[in-house]
Design a protein around this nucleic acid. Structure first.
Length: 843
RNA sequence: GCCGAGGUGGCGGAAUGGCAGACGCUCAGGUCUCAAAAACCUGUGAGCAUAAUAGCUCGUGGAGGUUCGACUCCUCUCCUCGGCACCA
């Protein structure tokens, strides 16, 4: 059965051969035209490689192989993002120690990755849980601290009072603990943060320079969320006019300030502790009770429960200088401390949330006349509300002004008067690094109580804190048995004296190590810098080699899922910018080109274990082969959109692979006897062009369709090709079906030079992409559409030379019986002529 | 609520403002076979109509508009999916 394609045999043969011949190992040092083709790091969290991973990797790999055939030295690395909560949770689930499970996952993942046909450089893998890697993750933390970008602050964590444990967001399901079902509350802990907000401006500013899809760029833009506004200062008094200091409110709409009727503070606002002792007892008690209550529920929970906004009056007032109005000062948990200044000036006539509060608290509603229509200037339309409540109208000096102009005018006015100051705020929050968990790199910090007392420390603003000296890195994660997250939000490592007891780098006295580990997003925020340097002479002394980095970075093309639009991509950009500012890099954007691929679904439904419709690539590879699966995945739909995996479609692709095999083998058997018709030669050149153009654009589905059209054409014209043409087709096929193409290529070479076994350097994957000859793209004859009033009435065949001769085509078209039927006896008012395309008679 | 993407045959999906439905699946019929599978061939948007695979009408979520001509551009609208969200 020489004519039956044996995918198992062929694919195994080439995987072995490529590995032996180091076909895909990049020459990092000597490369002339480096092309760093990177896909997002997979995290080996579950049973193994998911078909979604394979989809992403295949789409990336085809691009890498195509670029290599364009003459680039392509480096396509692979590794595992194996630290972090996903891997840890999976280890718990299967009852294995995370260290042990990591080894098992690694083995299984690498086995699967080695059979999906990717051109991975297996000599340079990266695993985030490898001490040789996380040593440098810790080094990065140390740099952040030294440059003032790491600091400590209180932050809320999810807390299950029943399990007495900290939960990750994904373990909180509908406000309940995923394990015991109890309501999850919030708990404030001192934790480490990275000051990513210091780079908010730069992160935003660079966005137009990035060649990313709009979707991802706008997501980043919104996430950074630049807001230009003004901080307005209000003096606070009691009913007798005694001064209590100032409260500052941030607003983006100062033009509505004539309508301001109240001010609200967040429960955590520092002003509250300031006034607590001096307030009238009745107000102070009420306020304390309210704040106590508010602390127990997070704002997300309140929204989810649809609770009405409520608050407490402090007995104090803020003076609105514009109107002289005494605005009552409230405390309410709908105001969030982390947003703006943590204090809001309430304009119920122009803001829906302010209105809701005013309604409940019985606060008057005033509206301001701005905007061109002279009626309202508004974010939220609450006209109907206005009628019911008989609100006051206040025009002020902005009467009738367009909103944008009114905002600027008011800002100028407030600044002139010294009542406010223009500020820029961002939605972006600082990056919470600490995890009260086991499976991550220990944060490389040491705290010394003695130094703290004496106000000594590595940084003046953080007494008592020292970084672990660089030559003592890594701080290795000890292999402990009680690795599960424990009581009272204490990290597992905090129960191990032998781990946390250490000497103070400052005073040499007794000190303790930080026992939280870092966020898994930190691991993946710099891995792309490590890959090219793996195995270099400097790999043990530097996180990344300067020479190599200069040559290979930034990443030429980054491919991954749009679900990482904000977090991973933002963190990587931030880390890169910081490293540049510290002098380690000479570029500030890690991924100038990023392609977001779509998601795979199964028979119209999302894949999930509970539905039992998860596609395991292993089974399909066994049944149909890697190449057929690769091509089917790419054929399902546009790579940018994802696709619907259907078993019947998989069968179809498998059939086509067999057809290609038969076409090729029978062509080789027929040998020199085959003469290709013009139409086949033309078809081949058209296919080369089409597949080349579409692959570059990552329109893999239409590339494959074009290849199918070609094999259909061959089948209609004898079914065989001369070997010289077959070789060109095999080259076009190579990025998509690397094993099949390599096998056919070898056979073609053997056919060309009988008796000479092709050598290692002859791999189809080291060949250049075939050039099409433009002369074959030109048709002798074109078919032109003949329309009457825009409706198709006939098509005519015309020589290419005459296809732009309007006179001739008019005559030709009018001789058509069907066309005559529609124009006979009518006056032709106009003729639209598109050379080579159509002619349209307007009657 | 806000932002983004998208709605095309039985299905997945093709179409620089110029012949809608490429390619594949499905289904039906046929060839081969004792039979089946595989393979190959033919057909497959709906409707009208025909000796005819001559021709006609409708048709890209819906309603309008621009245009000789609209899946494609504009306005409004409905629905689906994804992201963000008391952001002041």
């Amino acid at each position: 059965m020489a004519n039956k394609y044996n995918h198992e045999e062929v694919e195994a043969k080439w995987q072995k051969t490529w590995s032996e011949r180091k076909t895909d190992v990049s020459d990092i040092g000597q490369a002339k035209k480096p092309f760093y083709n990177l896909m997002m790091f997979p995290y080996p969290s579950a049973e193994g490689l998911h078909v979604g991973n394979m989809y992403a990797f295949t789409g990336t790999d085809i691009y890498g192989r195509f670029q290599r055939m364009q003459g680039y030295d392509v480096f396509e690395p692979i590794g595992l993002d194996g630290f972090g909560i996903h891997s840890e949770n999976y280890a718990f689930k299967v009852g294995k120690h995370p260290v042990e499970q990591a080894k098992r996952s690694e083995k299984n993942f690498y086995r699967q990755l080695s059979v999906i046909g990717g051109m991975y450089d297996w000599s340079r893998t990266v695993e985030t849980y490898d001490p040789g890697y996380y040593r440098w993750t810790q080094w990065l933390f140390v740099q952040m601290f030294r440059h003032g970008l790491a600091y400590r602050s209180k932050a809320e964590v999810n807390w299950c009072p029943s399990c007495k444990t900290v939960l990750a967001d994904e373990q909180v399901i509908e406000e309940k603990c995923e394990r015991c079902g109890n309501i999850v509350t919030k708990k404030a802990l001192e934790q480490w943060f990275f000051r990513i907000t210091a780079y908010a401006g730069k992160l935003l500013e660079n966005i137009p320079k990035l060649n990313w899809s709009n979707k991802v760029l706008t997501a980043q833009e919104h996430w950074i969320g630049k807001k230009e506004g003004i901080n307005i200062k209000y003096s606070v008094v009691d009913e007798k006019g005694v001064s209590f200091g100032d409260v500052i409110c941030f607003t983006t709409r100062p033009d509505t300030n004539y309508g301001a009727t109240f001010v609200v503070l967040a429960p955590e606002h520092p002003f509250i502790s300031k006034i607590d002792g001096v307030l009238k007892k009745e107000y102070a008690d009420q306020m304390r009770r309210y704040i106590e209550q508010a602390k127990k529920t997070s704002s997300q929970d309140r929204i989810a429960q649809g609770r009405k906004k409520t608050g407490v009056f402090t007995g104090l007032y803020c003076i609105n200088q514009l109107t002289g109005y005494k605005m009552p000062l409230y405390v309410s948990d709908f105001v969030v401390m982390g947003v703006g200044t943590g204090a809001v000036v309430g304009v119920p006539g122009h803001d829906k949330r302010d209105f809701e509060f005013a309604e409940v608290m019985n606060i008057p509603v005033k509206r301001v006349v701005v905007s061109d229509d002279g009626k309202k200037g508004d974010i939220t339309d609450i006209e109907d509300v206005q009628e019911e409540n008989g609100v006051m109208i206040n025009s002020g000096f902005l009467d009738g002004m367009p909103i944008q102009k009114a905002i600027v005018t008011m800002m100028d006015h407030l600044e002139e008067k010294g009542w406010g100051e223009r500020v820029v705020n961002y939605h972006l929050r600082d990056w919470l690094i600490s995890r009260q968990r086991y499976w991550g790199p220990p944060i490389p910090m040491i705290r010394c109580a003695a130094c703290e007392k004496n106000s000594k420390g590595e940084r003046a603003d953080m007494p008592g804190w020292y970084t672990v000296p660089e030559d003592k890195l890594p701080v290795e994660l000890p292999n402990i048995e009680d690795y599960k997250p424990g009581d009272d939000g204490i990290a597992p490592l905090a129960k191990h004296k032998e781990f946390y007891e250490t000497k103070c780098p400052g005073c040499d006295g007794m000190a303790t190590r930080e026992t939280d580990v870092s966020d898994t997003f930190l691991d993946s925020s710099w891995y792309f810098l490590r890959y090219p340097s793996v195995g270099s002479v400097t790999a043990d002394t530097l996180p990344f080699d300067p020479e190599i980095t200069k040559k290979w970075l930034p990443v030429s093309m980054y491919t991954g899922g749009a679900e990482h639009s904000v977090l991973h991509l933002m963190y990587s950009r931030f880390v890169t910018m910081a490293l540049k500012d510290w002098g380690y890099l000479d570029f500030d954007e890690p991924f100038p080109n990023f392609f977001a691929h779509g998601l795979v679904i199964k028979e119209g439904a999302k894949m999930s274990k509970s539905k039992g419709n998860v596609v395991n690539p292993d089974e399909y590879i066994k049944l149909y082969g890697t190449d057929a699966l690769r091509m089917y995945l790419m054929f399902m739909g546009p790579f940018s959109e994802g696709g619907d995996f259907r078993d019947s479609g998989m069968e179809g692709m498998s059939r086509w692979v067999s057809r290609v095999w038969r076409m090729a083998t029978s062509s080789l058997e027929a040998g020199t006897d085959v003469v290709a018709s013009d139409i086949v030669v033309k078809g081949l050149h058209k296919t080369i062009k089409k597949v080349g153009d579409d692959t570059a654009k990552r329109h893999y589905n239409t590339s494959i369709a074009a290849m199918m059209e070609f094999t259909n054409l061959v089948s209609d014209h004898g079914g065989t090709l001369p070997v010289s043409l077959l070789k060109m087709f095999v080259l076009v096929l190579a990025p998509y079906a690397p094993h099949l193409a390599e096998e056919l290529w070898e056979r073609c070479l053997a056919h060309d030079q009988v008796g000479n076994q092709p050598g290692a350097g002859m791999s189809v994957h080291h060949q250049l992409w075939p050039e099409f000859d433009a002369k074959y793209l030109v048709e002798n004859q074109v078919s032109m559409a003949v329309q009457v009033n825009g409706r198709l009435r006939d098509t005519i065949q015309i020589d290419i030379e005459s296809s732009s001769n309007q006179k001739k085509i008019e005559a030709n078209a009018q001789s058509s019986e069907n066309v005559r039927k529609y124009i006979e006896g009518k006056e032709i008012r106009k003729i639209i002529f598109v050379p080579g395309k159509l002619i349209n008679f307007v009657v």
